[in-house]
C-alpha cells in the first residue's frame, strides 16, 4: 500500500471528524497553559531553576559567576579540586573561545573518553531545571554527551519559565528550528537495573552549571 492509499484510508476513517480550521482548533486546546502546567508564581525564576537543577533527581551543581571572564578560573578550580588535569573540550563558540584559556589544553571536539567539556547553553528552563542547547557550526551535539563532567555556562537572563517559552523565544516555525534542540536536565542516568537510580549511564556523570549574573 502506498502513501496515497494509506492517507486515503485514514481520511475515510476520519470522515466527518476533522476540523474546518485545524490550526485554530489545535491552538484553542492549549490557549491557557497555566491551567495544565506546573506554576510557581511567587518563586523567582533563578531560585526555581537552582532548586530544580540541584534536586535529587536532576543532580546538577550550580555556581554563580559575575562575568563570563571569570569562567576559566572557575573551571580551573573545578578541575584542580577533582584532580582532572588541564585538558578541556571547549565548545567552539566565540563567547567561550575568546576567553583566556592559556592555562589549559583545549580541543574543539570531544574524544571518545573525554573527561570534561565546557559548553554554553542557549537558555534554561526554570520549571524543570533544564538547560537548552541549539546545535550549529559552533555548537556540536557530542560535547554535551561524551564527557564525564559536563560544565555549562548559562546567562541568568536566559532562564525562561517553561519549555513553551523556549519555543516562543527561538521561534516555533519549521524554519526557526536548529538541526537538534537538546533539552538537558542534569546528568545521564539509568534505572534499568531494578529501578535503582545510577548516574553516568552513557553520558555525563556530573553536571556543573555556571550561572552568569550579568
Amino acid at each position: 500500500m502506498s502513501r496515497d492509499a494509506l492517507l486515503a484510508k485514514i481520511d475515510h476513517a476520519n470522515a466527518g471528524r476533522g476540523d474546518m480550521d485545524v490550526k485554530a482548533a489545535a491552538d484553542a486546546l492549549i490557549a491557557e497553559p497555566d491551567r495544565f502546567r506546573v506554576t510557581f508564581n511567587d518563586q523567582p525564576l533563578y531560585d526555581r531553576f537552582v532548586e530544580k537543577a540541584t534536586s535529587e533527581t536532576v543532580t546538577a551543581t550550580v555556581e554563580t559567576l559575575d562575568a563570563l571572564a571569570d569562567v576559566p578560573a572557575a573551571v580551573a578550580a573545578y578541575m584542580a579540586a577533582r584532580d582532572l588535569g588541564n585538558r578541556i573540550a571547549l565548545q567552539p563558540r566565540e563567547s567561550l573561545t575568546a576567553l583566556d584559556w592559556s592555562a589549559f589544553e583545549t580541543a574543539a571536539t570531544a574524544q571518545m573518553n573525554e573527561v570534561l567539556a565546557l559548553t554554553f547553553a542557549d537558555a534554561a528552563i526554570a520549571e524543570t531545571g533544564s538547560l537548552v542547547f541549539r546545535t550549529g557550526p559552533d555548537a556540536p551535539v557530542l560535547l554535551n554527551f561524551l564527557p564525564l563532567h559536563h560544565l555549562a555556562v548559562v546567562r541568568r537572563s536566559a532562564i525562561l519559565p517553561h519549555m513553551e517559552d523556549v519555543f516562543d523565544h527561538f521561534g516555533t516555525s519549521a524554519a526557526d528550528q536548529p538541526r537538534s534542540l537538546n533539552i538537558i536536565t542534569g546528568t545521564s542516568g539509568t534505572a534499568d537495573i531494578e529501578a535503582k537510580n545510577v548516574r553516568g549511564a552513557h553520558g555525563p556523570r556530573f553536571m556543573h552549571i555556571y550561572c552568569l549574573s550579568g
Binding site: T57, Q177, A195
Partner: peptide
C-alpha cells in the same frame, strides 16, 4: 513512566547535518 518531572534528555531533531555542522 518512572516518576520524574522530565526525562534527562529530550531532543527535537530536524533533518540531517547542515552546512558547517561538526557532527550529526
Amino acid at each position: 513512566a518512572i516518576g520524574t518531572e522530565i526525562t534527562q534528555y529530550t531532543t527535537f531533531f530536524n533533518g540531517p547535518k547542515r552546512e558547517g555542522d561538526r557532527d550529526g
